[in-house]
Design a protein around this nucleic acid. Sequence first.
DNA 1: CTGGAGCCGTAAGGGATCCGTCAGTGCGAC
DNA 2: GTCGCACTGACGGATCCCTTACGGCTCCAG
Lengths: 231, 231
Amino acid sequence: MKILVADDDPQILAALRILLHAHGYEVVLARTGTAALDAAAHEHPDLVLLDLGMPGLSGVQVIRAIRGWSTVPILVVSGRTESYDKVAALDTGADDYVTKPFLADELAARIRALTRRNVPDAEEPVVRFGDVEVDLARHRVTRSVGGQETAVRLTPTEWAFLEVLVRNPDRLVTRQYLLDHVWGPGHANDSGYLRLYMAQLRKKLEREPAEPVHLLTDPGLGYRFVPGARS
Amino acid sequence: MKILVADDDPQILAALRILLHAHGYEVVLARTGTAALDAAAHEHPDLVLLDLGMPGLSGVQVIRAIRGWSTVPILVVSGRTESYDKVAALDTGADDYVTKPFLADELAARIRALTRRNVPDAEEPVVRFGDVEVDLARHRVTRSVGGQETAVRLTPTEWAFLEVLVRNPDRLVTRQYLLDHVWGPGHANDSGYLRLYMAQLRKKLEREPAEPVHLLTDPGLGYRFVPGARS
DNA sequence: CTGGAGCCGTAAGGGATCCGTCAGTGCGAC
DNA sequence: GTCGCACTGACGGATCCCTTACGGCTCCAG
């Protein structure tokens, strides 16, 4: 049972490490938001203990990023007692919220309650299809042509487009949904964007851009990402 | 989304009922531990809001009893702030613990956090008939001919037509209903559309389009979808 | 029995829409 | 300036929706 502890205060970090270790957990530490994201992606923790007041990324940003590819339980520990902060964290994807100072017994009990439900985790934040590999955590796309792994350069808009599709495998993604999530609301009639960026994605990711295999279109409705057979 | 509220204080009960109702939840009330158990068993709530200080059964007993047959999320609301009570409730099977007095916003957020996770095990939105498989969630239709699963291409209108029929199995769907839901209001007299698209659907989905088995017509009234025997 | 009126199923064609593609412009960063 | 990115506009070509037409069927009046 592995727990990722993210806090910028070395003292609290040490105290939590000792406490959790005493309860039999394996502990991984992170002192910044970006480090926490990195560890969450590659250490596959069974639970994330997250402090909100870290430098760099805000706590809410960290939660949103993790929720982008993982369903790991997130327990927020924060000095902020305002209801607004709690609601924001919980609605972004946190599973529980404890305010400092907290009692060790209660924290341990809440950790047990969250890990108890543990569903089969180890959901890889990497999606593969054809000769392409998409790393949702690192925002990186690579392609192996001729046994050689080469990075694929995507523009921010291209990435946002691809991300929406990859997170809904085998499922129709309507034009409306794509426009809302990539360009934001208010672009309901700009379906020309979709044609344009889909063409660019196919040019960069499909073996035969003229006859796509993984990035398909459902005429009149939207687009669809089909991973197909693992290769 | 149904919530069972168990509390012995009528005032709190009424307040919670109003609060939850305002958030769009269906609310079931119980004023004793035994009543709560009964309701949890027969009402199939999506979440249980449980007060610890009820007469009859103790809160921990109620939690243990529910956990004996159900994994429904349990949120404990209690006046007891002692760490011992929290640990006992959480370790018995509760998923969260909030102390009175509590803020309405925070409680609502914690309810959302608990119900969010429970959604995935929804009903299987797949309908099968003959050699056809309709996946309503993924918006996909496949047909297995000769042991090979092949995708069926449907136009948007064909899909809308099929969707209405599939969502009303073994029931007569009147021409009026179909026209309203597929073409929108104002096409009450365009029953010719129905003949046309029904013919196309039968051609794509029926083994013998001339002698349909699953997509039947009720002369003068409308059409009917009959899944028939599972195959 | 016979003929006609609806209703249903089928086929073919035209117009509108949608899709893929390719230039080209504007704008900000370096 | 130069480069990269977002966006615009326009063009064939494919697809889709609707219209129109025709034949078969049932049912009922004559």
